[in-house]
Amino acid sequence: MVMDKPREVLVIGGSRYFGKRLIARLLAAGDRVTVLNRGSSAPPPGTVHLVADRDDEASLRAALGSRVFDAVVDQVCYTPRQAAVARRVFTGRTGRYLMTSTVEVYEYEDSLAPVREADVDPLDVVVDLELPWNDSEFTDAHYGEGKRQAEAVFATDPPFPWAAVRVAHVLGGDDDFTGRLEHYVSRIRAGEPITVPTVNQPATYIHVEEIADFLFWAVGQDFTGPVNAASHGRLTTRDLCEAIAAQLPYGETVFRESEIGEVSPFSFRRFYGMDNSRAVALGYRFGDVRRWLPRAVTETLGTAARSGAAGKGD
């Protein structure tokens, strides 16, 4: 990318997983990057670090001072209250606002076809700021709803160009803090049962490096509104396990079907696929999930081995 001058980019959050990879890409492109978080972790070298509680409007305004940005990438907007604060604070401060959203906004869609952005229009979402959004247990239990309502706050008469990247389930990297793929590695290694629905529906995924690439690309675009970010292709839990078992010759994959109750991560009773055609039409070229899945498994195996070694030393 050729730029006349460095862009001023603010990343809210971004201290781990694909957020830190996005920051690395921005710095490599010559952008001037400011990272804002609560101060619990230091941002990558080469960035400006601002410390503030994004839930506290006065704290956020004080930390920002008179700064303005070409783009803001909000990695940690989980509730409509947070969106409302950001909307007020960043009005007049940014030329573009990019919110990292999630496939979970489609949690109530039970379609046999991949869901499109229009299936959940933020302008049709009812916002309720009186719900207990400051309660972490409530927010965790209503993750998809929080993201839906946050999108709706930004989408209603937006004060700046705004977009929401609805991210598919992310895999890969040697620093996946979720432990979801590692769950399968440990169970296949031990021959322990993996609980799946009686009918195991597929889902869409994206590699951690690809979503970092996508967000970096999206910073420099001018599209607005929601966009789905997912690699081509879909996988069931069994597909994931087959890819893991191929690299664990001494393991054993044992499935236990369940009609009700909890199942393993990435095991879905309904179809969980996203249509990525809007992003493709805008010019982004996604990879294919089956091509990068072996790499993601190798990275997860490395994480699991280090975790095991660390545990033996405790």
Rank of each mutant, 00 (worst) to 15 (best):
N228L: 08
T224H: 01
P226I: 01
A243I: 10
I188D: 15
V219I: 08
Q247L: 09
V208K: 10
V199E: 14
P193V: 10
R234P: 00
Q201K: 13
T236R: 15
D175G: 03
D175F: 09
R256N: 04
F214S: 09
I211A: 08
V170F: 10
D222M: 03
E242I: 09
A243Y: 06
A212W: 03
T237C: 14
E252S: 14
D222C: 08
F214T: 04
D175E: 12
G251F: 00
V165C: 15
S258M: 04
C241F: 04
Q247S: 14
I260W: 11
E210G: 06
F216M: 01
D213T: 04
P249W: 06
E257R: 01
Y250C: 08
T253D: 03
R234V: 11
S186I: 00
A203S: 15
R256Q: 12
A230C: 15
V254N: 04
T195M: 06
R189A: 15
T253S: 12
G179K: 04
G172F: 02
G179D: 02
I244N: 00
V254M: 09
F216E: 13
V227G: 08
F216G: 00
I188E: 11
E209I: 00
D239C: 12
A203E: 02
T204W: 03
H232D: 13
T224W: 01
V208G: 05
F214Q: 08
A243V: 07
D222R: 12
Q247N: 06
R166D: 06
V170A: 00
D213M: 07
Q221S: 09
I188R: 00
L171K: 05
V254K: 08
L171P: 02
I188V: 12
V196K: 04
Q201G: 02
W217C: 10
A212E: 09
R187L: 13
A246P: 01
R234Q: 11
R234H: 13
E210M: 05
P249R: 11
W217G: 07
I244E: 06
V167H: 04
A230V: 15
T224P: 02
S186E: 13
P202V: 08
N200D: 15
I244R: 02
H232P: 04
A229P: 10
A190P: 03
A164R: 00
H183K: 03
E192Q: 11
A190M: 08
I244V: 15
E182M: 04
G251N: 06
E252C: 12
L215H: 13
R166C: 05
H207S: 12
P226D: 13
F216H: 15
V199K: 14
I260Q: 14
G179Q: 06
A164I: 08
A203Y: 07
E257C: 03
D239R: 12
A190L: 08
G220Q: 09
F223H: 07
R180H: 07
I211W: 07
E209V: 00
C241R: 02
A190S: 12
T224Q: 12
S186Q: 14
V185W: 01
S231N: 11
N228H: 02
A168H: 06
V199Q: 13
V165W: 03
Q247Y: 01
